[in-house]
């Protein structure tokens, strides 16, 4: 009985969590639809949500293929960034001089806007590679800096404990520094996932018609030239959805790995 009331309370809480944002979202779409119809705004200026949805369905074959291209670029760049970022962070943790010599470059890479780098990369590289490199460049830094921070901020008492038991450097790395850095790394990964997508999109837009690429950004550029505004919106919607999926994917991984022990994944209540 008591458990049942508890369940009810939980269902109600869940409802209260989800209902308001869902209602607000639906209301915004409704308002948009209403304004477009009421003021008879032509679709080449602002398409109604319903038209965007039908375009999405109608052009699904082309758009979904582009979405897969964008996703695969994002994940290729992200894998490279994870590999490079983690390896360099490990090198930072082992040798101070490596950190001092290379960290400034990482910072420069990070603070220079990718929009400004992309055209340059397009001069030197073929468009496909340039897109990949752009996505890599923006995804790399959060992985590197978060992992390096995680490796450096291991509980110093635990480090003492490992010294006390005469642990080798390798044991210390495997049993102590890597697990301690995991939450930081995953935080970096979550940010990097979104950034890699942005990097890929920016580069593809910069490549414009020069690119023979067929990612979602290319669809936007292409639809823009043809004044096919509903399709631009449909591609834009898919980009947002892709971003959300990537974020949700890494949040899920993070939750799976940390739920049992880390405070960031703690249930409140």
């Amino acid at each position: 009985m008591a458990a049942q009331t508890g369940d009810h309370a939980m269902n109600r809480d869940r409802l209260l969590n989800w209902a308001p944002p869902a209602i607000v979202f639906a209301a915004m779409l409704g308002l948009w639809e209403f304004v477009v119809r009421y003021r008879a705004i032509p679709p080449y200026i602002l398409p109604a949500p319903s038209l965007i949805a039908t375009t999405l369905v109608k052009d699904w074959d082309t758009l979904s293929a582009s979405m897969l291209v964008t996703l695969s670029i994002t994940f290729e760049a992200l894998s490279a960034a994870v590999f490079g970022g983690v390896v360099l962070a490990l090198a930072f943790a082992q040798w101070r001089w490596v950190e001092r010599s290379f960290f400034p470059f990482a910072v420069v890479m990070q603070v220079t806007p990718i929009v400004a780098i992309a055209p340059l990369l397009l001069v030197y590289l073929d468009p496909g590679t340039a897109v990949l490199v752009c996505a890599f460049v923006v995804a790399f830094f959060p992985i590197l800096s978060n992992t390096a921070l995680g490796l450096a901020s291991t509980d110093h008492n635990l480090v003492d404990l490992f010294d006390l038991y005469r642990a080798s450097r390798f044991q210390q790395l495997i049993f102590l520094r890597l697990p301690a850095a995991l939450p930081y790394f995953l935080g970096g990964l979550r940010i990097a996932g979104g950034l890699a997508l942005i990097g890929a999109i920016v580069a593809e837009i910069a490549a414009g018609s020069a690119g023979q690429g067929s990612g979602l950004a290319y669809r936007i550029v292409e639809a823009g030239f043809r004044l096919n505004i509903p399709r631009m919106f449909a591609a834009l919607t898919l980009i947002s959805i892709t971003g959300i999926l990537i974020f949700a994917f890494f949040s899920g991984i993070s939750w799976l790995l940390l739920a049992r022990w880390h405070d960031s994944a703690r249930e409140r209540g």
Partner: peptide, 11 residues
């Protein structure tokens, strides 16, 4: 060695 804090590995 026992520290002032439990100093356990949270993972």
């Amino acid at each position: 060695f026992v520290f002032q804090d439990p100093t356990l590995m949270p993972w």
